[in-house]
Nucleic acid binder design. Structure first.
Lengths: 143, 143
DNA sequence: TTGCAAATGAGAACTATTATCATTTATAAA
DNA sequence: TTTATAAATGATAATAGTTCTCATTTGCAA
């Protein structure tokens, strides 16, 4: 059975407060899959909910720690968050329009683990970002 | 025949000034391979050369554009630079001590290209960072 | 309902980086 | 060589992204 949002929060050990519920539903119901803190803040303002920017940052970090969201560091420095659907994946980022596409490749994953292990590292996580132009698509997204 | 530093700069279309020569030799002769702007600045101060922080940032960016240095964005937000020895490679970063190790894997490279191409992207570049603990080594480097 | 720890919001503070601008410097021409 | 000048530099202000502080508010358990 599927869970209501307050349950998601409770399971994560977080009180279900108004700002947290709004931010979570932005990710669960909203149109954008990858959002920076600023993006989230603007969406909330636009829909008349006023949540402080500091709260947005705090909540995003808490959600990341709780495993509800995944944080990515793309070129340019700012963090971007997305709903953590459990399945690990990597990203292709369009340099023209900023559009993000996900992919998963078992061969790459296993070679990464092998390489790190051979060298005596215990892998925590990894990030693979391919920066490119989406030639076929004629960049439908504005940066 | 090998080139002197001023030649490196001249070839890159940059005047050979004192700050630029000092920064370049820090990378060519120094002990650290991967340095942030702050790292470079501190090393220069330590050796009595006083170069302004703004100049450090400017020069690092120019060197990057000229192909002398490569810039990497690791987790944590700040950029790290290394001498560009021409051969592309990826990185394993130790989360405990910040030590960076390089690797190259042809299989990963070719799969990346294949994946992006299949999806209609023209690859500019990519970054693959593995974040881990260097278990075997007992972290000889201080962060 | 009330009590209180936890959460929030406003704004200060902080970190990394870039921009501004008056002064200095490398270099090419005289 | 001197000199002219465009480019480079350094100090510092400004900016972007993010975290911290602290007084006020709120969720929730007794």
């Amino acid at each position: 059975m599927d869970r209501s949002q307050p349950d998601h929060l409770k399971n994560a050990g977080l009180k279900s407060t108004v700002p947290r519920l709004k931010i979570l539903s932005l990710f669960e119901l909203g149109q954008e899959r990858h959002m920076s803190a600023e993006d989230v803040y603007k969406h909330l303002l636009a829909s008349g909910d006023d949540v402080g920017l500091a709260t947005v940052y705090r909540v995003l970090t808490q959600f990341e720690q709780a495993g509800l969201l995944a944080r990515h560091y793309f070129e340019g420095g700012k963090s971007v968050f997305e709903l953590n659907h459990g399945k690990h994946h990597d990203h292709i980022v369009c340099l023209q329009c900023g559009h993000v596409e996900e992919f998963y490749d078992a061969a790459i994953e296993s070679r990464q683990k092998k390489i790190a292990t051979e060298r005596g590292f215990a892998v925590h996580d990894h990030s693979l970002h391919i920066y490119a132009d989406c030639v076929k698509k004629n960049c439908p997204h504005k940066r």
